[in-house]
Each structure stands twice: as structure tokens, then as C-alpha cells.
Amino acid sequence: MGKYSDEFKHKVVKEYLEGKLGYRATAKIHGIKVYSNIDSWEKVYGKFGQEGLTTKKHPVSYPVQLKMDEVLQKWCSPSLWANPPYDFRVFKGRMSL
């Protein structure tokens, strides 16, 4: 869960959109330490409506064994070793997967 509830964010954005106060003043009244949060919320609200302000649930957590199986399958694949510099993205002395 985020630091601020969905209802709180909606209330703050609505108050800001009424046009009486700016970001800083609205943040100070509601005890929001980072006033740019209101700017972000306002942009999301403008694009997606109230649904955009809802806290997203975290993705499913996968078991460790499933992750290990996927890594082993990738590493044991013959196609991985056919062209290592490309598959490992080895460029200019740096390596990443």
C-alpha cells in the first residue's frame, strides 16, 4: 500500500483543481512533504480519471524453483552458446544479459 490512500489523493487533486491554491500551499495544508506528488497525481487524474489514482497491486510472486528452472533452461540452451557476444550483449568490454 502506498503512503497516501486513494481517497486522500482524490480529495487533494479535487481541491487543487478548484484553483484556490497552488501545489505548495495544497501540500502544506494536507501535510504532504513532497509537493510534486500533487503535480503527478493531477497529471494522472487528468489522463485516467479517478481510476488512475488507485493503488496498483503488486504482481504475482513466483516460486524460487520456477525462477531457477527458467534460468537453467536459458543457460543450457544450445542457441545461447551459438553466438555468445550477441546473446550476452558484450560490447566495449561490458557484459549484460
Score class of each variant (00 low, 15 high):
13 V>H: 00
79 S>T: 13
22 G>E: 11
72 L>V: 03
86 Y>E: 12
42 E>H: 14
58 H>M: 06
97 L>N: 06
97 L>T: 06
92 K>Y: 14
58 H>V: 07
77 S>D: 15
59 P>Y: 03
38 I>K: 03
65 Q>K: 15
48 F>L: 08
33 K>Q: 01
34 V>R: 09
71 V>P: 04
37 N>V: 10
91 F>L: 13
29 I>C: 08
52 G>P: 02
28 K>Q: 12
72 L>N: 04
93 G>V: 02
78 P>G: 06
54 T>S: 07
6 D>Q: 03
6 D>T: 03
39 D>C: 11
69 D>L: 08
32 I>C: 00
22 G>F: 03
59 P>H: 07
65 Q>G: 15
7 E>W: 04
75 W>H: 02
60 V>W: 02
18 E>D: 15
94 R>N: 07
2 G>A: 10
62 Y>Q: 05
23 Y>F: 12
9 K>P: 00
89 R>A: 14
8 F>W: 05
7 E>Q: 13
72 L>G: 02
85 P>C: 07
23 Y>S: 06
63 P>K: 11
45 Y>E: 01
73 Q>T: 14
56 K>P: 05
24 R>K: 11
86 Y>I: 10
51 E>N: 14
35 Y>S: 14
80 L>G: 06
30 H>E: 03
58 H>Q: 10
28 K>C: 02
11 K>P: 06
51 E>Q: 13
27 A>Y: 06
32 I>M: 01
72 L>C: 08
16 Y>T: 04
93 G>D: 08
25 A>I: 08
54 T>L: 09
51 E>T: 13
11 K>M: 13
81 W>Q: 15
36 S>P: 02
8 F>Q: 08
27 A>H: 08
51 E>R: 15
59 P>L: 06
20 K>H: 15
